[in-house]
Design a protein around this nucleic acid. Structure first.
Lengths: 350, 350
DNA sequence: ACAATTTATGCAATCGTTTGCAAAAGTCGA
DNA sequence: TCGACTTTTGCAAACGATTGCATAAATTGT
């Protein structure tokens, strides 16, 4: 260290070859200034003289220097990373690969990238890990958290929301809740679905999906209220979201009930698709024998046979909304929840 | 600070209420030991006396203490985070939400979580940001990198692979390449698709998809070689992957060519699905008038009408393979690429 | 040419953990 | 009871960047 040019075969500017320039201190030494100056120059602060800045920038470029973000994060107490938690509670086998979550995640990635944030993804299984949310928040690795889906963790999320501000959750809004949530009015969506089914002549309804998850429960309730108002019975066909189980369970439901119902409200488009395939296999005509309405309006809803009538959630708007709210909360603002109006998209399945 | 019990309304153990215990030093003070000891105790190192460890653990629990991961990362020079880069090069409008990538990402999340790693997701647009890969690697925020899709960045990835070990890429394998890649034998998959189409009687083939992306090019080449061997002509119908464009482009292709072809090899299942929907709309019978083969075998391939014959990539195995290879490279091992054999799944569309 | 400013830079503390080394405390046999 | 060990702990130096404060340099006015 004390004899710079002695050990190495000593090509004049050979530093480029074997990148010893990993830290601000290295760069400072080469540039003949202090680390403070280098830091300021690279940060684009105005206090550095033009010449010096240019020289430092050139050297940084030439030696391929990059700031160590971890050190920077530690010192600045901010990371530029938003945590995304996907709790897999109500259905442990549900894959992260669930189409709706993945679509939402894609848009979140777009929105956050646009604002200069990175995403840290964490898949959590709440019943194995009581402490998941606090661990994520307390790690210091994220500036804020987006939770995708309340799963069965409503209570815990509520509790944390009382003391941690920068958190926005995708899910269902309940009267008087504390945490900031973005989502569709699932109740209303459920109503729209049931109304359509009944308007199309259905008189014996079924709800296809697991009504213990908060969001699905609201969809169910909405549909049920309409069914009740029309004196139409509605049964529940509980179904897991894990792709491997789903098909079998739907098949079994159809075995038992296909003859006794003439309208199905599926809790998600994926369920509706599986259901359509199952009905087609049994030569049951859709919508003539059984009407089917889905929920989400994923891109593939347009491509089913017959094309799926479904309740549209604007996932992109939701994702951008979540990011917007989170950034405002990070800035200290108090924000309301964002409840979006779902919209019935009529195609041919009902 | 010098008079612990004076200022506050002084409930004996009131520290619990207003969490002042944020750092090891805080905890050390309360426990009456040094930070070093606390650190060791919480890390589960054997050098700490049982009693002391228990006491410290109890206090940590009681005050809801959590290690600051950022500081820990800095000191240990490892973060426990794997970076996932999704380059959107050959088709800038392609959403991160592309079904195949999302499925792969889901499995990667499963595999990495299982191994105790977090995921940091970064969506990159290479032509806007020359330096994307080096920036990601050099940030110090990730221990290794998985790249999902080579896009049109083959050269850059090759270059980086020469000096950065912990990187595994999903994509196509080319003769003599340096970077460690996991993917299917796309050429073989293409052959299988074409063979099936021809065996089912197709004599005028079309390849549906954009053959400039590396992986698709290999699928095309494989199919073409079989077509040539059978003296069967094959045209190319280039199509973007952006969901909004895709449908229109496929429709326009069908307008122009539907009458002139009797077998379609779609570069992805999604394309195949859109294609099926388009053909159904035109009353063209599948597979009688036109046979269709897809690629990927996404879960929804089973649910199309008619169910899709497709070339299966075992995405789950691929994801777990990528993670396995990456961890071995992190451990210093030298690893070969993993080229998986695709498998034709015969359903009803061809 | 000199004092009064305004700019640019350097110094050193700080962010919160981890860990090598040394000192303190505990254990044991004789 | 004392020396020779073995466990436990404390001390303080890293990890690499940022930033308030102080000093050095450049600029300005007179």
């Amino acid at each position: 260290m004390s004899e710079p040019d002695t050990d190495r075969p000593a090509a004049p500017d050979a530093a480029t070859a074997d990148r010893p320039v990993r830290t601000l201190a290295d760069l400072a030494r080469i540039a003949g200034v202090s680390t403070g100056t280098v830091s300021r120059a690279l940060a684009g602060k105005s206090v550095v003289k033009g010449d010096t800045r240019k020289k430092i920038e050139a050297l940084a470029q030439q030696h391929g220097f990059r700031l160590n973000q971890v050190a920077s994060n530690l010192r600045r107490q901010r990371t530029g990373v938003i945590g995304i938690a996907i709790p897999l509670g109500h259905d442990r086998r549900q894959q992260v690969s669930d189409a709706f979550f993945m679509t939402l995640l894609g848009y979140l990635a777009d929105a956050l990238t646009e604002k200069g944030y990175d995403l840290m993804l964490r898949r959590v299984i709440p019943d194995r890990d009581e402490d998941w949310l606090d661990r994520f928040i307390g790690s210091g690795m994220v500036d804020g958290v987006l939770v995708i889906g309340q799963s069965d963790q409503f209570a815990r999320i509520e509790e944390v929301a009382g003391r941690y501000r920068p958190m926005v959750v995708w899910g269902n809004h309940q009267e008087g809740q504390r945490h900031c949530v973005v989502g569709s009015d699932n109740r209303l969506g459920g109503k729209q679905a049931a109304e359509r089914l009944i308007a199309q002549g259905a008189r014996r309804l079924a709800f296809l999906g697991d009504p213990t998850a908060t969001e699905f429960a609201a969809r169910y309730t909405g549909a049920k209220s309409v069914a009740d108002a029309h004196d139409v019975p509605m049964i529940t066909l509980p179904t897991h979201l894990a792709p491997d189980r789903m098909a079998k369970e739907v098949a079994s439901h159809m075995d038992q009930h296909a003859g006794a119902i003439d309208g199905i409200f599926a809790a998600t488009d994926i369920l509706a698709m599986v259901c359509l395939a199952e009905l087609a296999g049994r030569q049951i005509a859709v919508p003539d024998d059984i009407r089917v309405v889905g929920f989400d309006d994923l891109p593939l809803a347009e491509q089913t046979a017959p094309p799926l009538t479904t309740v549209r959630q604007d996932i992109r708007a939701g994702a951008f909304g979540m990011v917007d709210l989170l950034l405002r909360r990070l800035a200290g603002e108090e924000t309301e929840s964002l409840v979006m109006q779902p919209e019935l998209v009529v195609r041919q399945s009902a």
